[in-house]
């Protein structure tokens, strides 16, 4: 399947250096792509660029193989979006909010009931939105994004305001949509929100893409690091140079991207050189910790990237 989104060297700078810088994104068609990064990393800027709400300084965007230009709205027929929280008319009912977009999209009235049922809002459709809870508003905003039966769904922090049950429902909905062939691009500042459903992830930090690939690749990359604790880490580090391309010191521990099966040889080498090894194991940390490592301070990030 063709990539749903391809960005090459996409850039947009704001005063103060914020923005996105030379972004190369590849979102496979039919995937659930988790677009991750801390607040202020540039996720929403990227989404606004994708939707044509911002003009890029450089680079290009292709959606389903077609290059799109700022100001052109035709390609938006294929896209449903929720950008930075729900945009709703609080004085109108949920149904009327959907009816406005339905009219703008030229869709039959039956689509309203279909999307209301999909987000479980059928019973509250005729209540005014100002009486909705935050979670209900978020679900209505997702219904708005689904109204046009998009091939690509772009959701910016869709779990905001949802209770745990709502988050589980959202994950189920995203999985259903992906099974139907819809590409889902979902941004979040929490890996845990998407790791159960995402097939691919991109990790953004300070406007730059730090990692892009499948969740499997992300896990493999992290598991390759071997953690060693010993009595003289400073003396041990040069001794390990022959075992790994990159060696990193973190507090009392040494992390290295040694090959699988090299643990015995490493241990023997250190002991033969008079270093007492107290711990030698593959780091058994969560994806969340890797996410923090990728999006933490630049030095640590570079170390991890280089190690990978």
């Amino acid at each position: 399947m063709n990539p749903a989104i391809e960005c090459q060297q996409l850039s947009r700078r704001f005063p103060g250096g914020k923005g996105v810088h030379a972004l190369d994104l590849h979102v496979p068609g039919g995937s659930i792509y988790g677009f991750l990064g801390p607040n202020g990393a540039g996720k929403t800027t990227t989404i606004r660029l994708l939707l044509g709400l911002l003009r890029p300084d450089g680079g290009e965007i292709r959606l389903f193989g077609e290059r799109h230009r700022y100001g052109d709205t035709q390609w938006l027929h294929q896209v449903g979006a929720l950008v930075e929280g729900p945009s709703l008319y609080p004085h109108l009912s949920g149904r009327q909010n959907l009816d406005i977009s339905r009219r703008l999209l030229g869709l039959p009235a039956t689509r309203i009931d279909a999307v209301l049922a999909r987000v479980d809002l059928s019973n509250d459709a005729d209540r005014r939105v100002r009486d909705y809870s935050l979670g209900m508003r978020q679900r209505l905003a997702i219904a708005l994004a689904l109204l046009g039966e998009p091939r690509l769904l772009i959701l910016d922090e869709p779990a905001n305001g949802l209770d745990p049950a709502g988050i589980i429902d959202l994950r189920r909905l995203l999985a259903e949509l992906a099974a139907e062939g819809v590409t889902v691009f979902v941004s979040s500042h929490q890996l845990s929100e998407v790791e159960q459903v995402a097939s691919h992830v991109g990790v953004l930090q300070r406007g730059r893409l730090r990692f892009e690939g499948s969740l499997h690749e992300l896990r493999e990359r992290y598991r390759a690091l071997l953690e060693i604790r010993c009595d003289e880490p400073s003396r041990a580090m040069p001794l390990l140079e022959g075992f790994a391309a990159h060696i990193q010191r973190r507090d009392d521990a040494i992390l290295l991207d040694a090959d699988a099966g090299s643990e015995v040889a490493i241990n023997r080498h250190l002991v033969e050189n008079g270093i007492a090894v107290s711990h030698l194991a593959r780091e058994n940390s969560s994806l969340e910790q890797l996410f923090f490592a990728l999006t933490g301070d630049d030095d640590a990030t570079n170390d991890v990237e280089a190690a990978a």
Partner: peptide
Amino acid sequence: NQQWKHLFALPVP
């Protein structure tokens, strides 16, 4: 309600 971002992300000129 920050509607512009929703309205201008629709395929309507």
